[in-house]
Computed example of a mutant assay.
Amino acid sequence: MTGHTHKSIYRTQALPRSSFQSRKAEGRMADKNVHEAGFTPGGIKGGSTGSEMMSKEARSHGGGVPSGGPTSTLQEMGAKSSTHSSGFTPSGISSGTKASGMMSQEAKSHGGETPKGGTTSTVQSVSMGGKGK
């Protein structure tokens, strides 16, 4: 079949560049907010919101920071820059993600509500640039 040109009947449609760029920027912002709160790849920065949270959480748990609590969760995400990819974004929690699963589980264990000061609400607050309170 030399001399014939094949024309594709399929057309692809890319996402608008601005939509892709805004999601990417939102992801960078969530990770940036967590880093600025003191949760970094090198550990929790002294004098930061993160160190205050760690101190308060340790005092309320007899000297240790529990695994799966707000401080350990934020530090894990800060170390890996995985806040956004876990589903915590500056505009809210993304459905179908680790974050939405955490929120659902926490709500089930607290009578249908996500408690203020719990892991989900604290991580979401920090990813949005808040202080986690």
Rank of each mutant, 00 (worst) to 15 (best):
S19F: 14
P41Y: 07
G3K: 06
G47P: 02
R23T: 06
K133G: 12
K131Q: 14
S18K: 10
S19P: 00
I9V: 09
S81P: 00
G132I: 07
A99Y: 04
H4R: 15
T71Y: 12
K80E: 11
H61I: 08
G132D: 04
S100M: 03
A107G: 00
L74N: 02
A14P: 06
S55K: 15
S94Y: 04
Y10S: 10
G43S: 05
A58N: 11
T122E: 05
V126M: 05
A14V: 09
T119R: 08
G27A: 11
A79M: 07
S104R: 12
S72D: 14
S85T: 14
M102C: 01
G112Q: 01
G111Q: 00
V123A: 06
A107L: 00
E57A: 13
G62C: 09
R11L: 06
M102S: 02
G117E: 06
V123H: 08
G117R: 08
Q13H: 13
G118M: 01
V126H: 04
T89K: 12
A58L: 12
H61V: 03
I93N: 02
A25P: 00
G3T: 11
I44T: 10
P16Q: 08
Q13D: 09
I44P: 05
G96P: 09
I93H: 01
G117H: 06
L74G: 02
A79C: 01
E57V: 15
Y10E: 10
S60G: 04
S67I: 13
G129V: 06
M128V: 00
S104T: 13
G43R: 09
D31H: 03
A99N: 03
K98M: 12
S67Y: 11
A99I: 05
S18I: 12
R17V: 09
G78H: 04
L74F: 05
G87T: 09
S104D: 07
S81Y: 04
Q105A: 15
S81N: 13
K131A: 13
A107F: 01
M103S: 07
A58Y: 11
K56A: 13
T12K: 14
S100W: 06
T12N: 08
G118P: 02
G3V: 09
G92Q: 03
Q21S: 07
L15Q: 08
K133H: 07
S121A: 11
K45A: 03
I93V: 14
Q124I: 03
T83D: 01
H84F: 15
E106R: 03
F39R: 10
V123M: 08
Q124C: 01
P16C: 00
K133R: 12
S85L: 05
K116M: 00
R11F: 02
T2V: 10
T2E: 10
S18A: 13
G47R: 05
K108T: 05
G130C: 06
S100T: 04
G101M: 06
T5I: 11
D31M: 05
E76T: 15
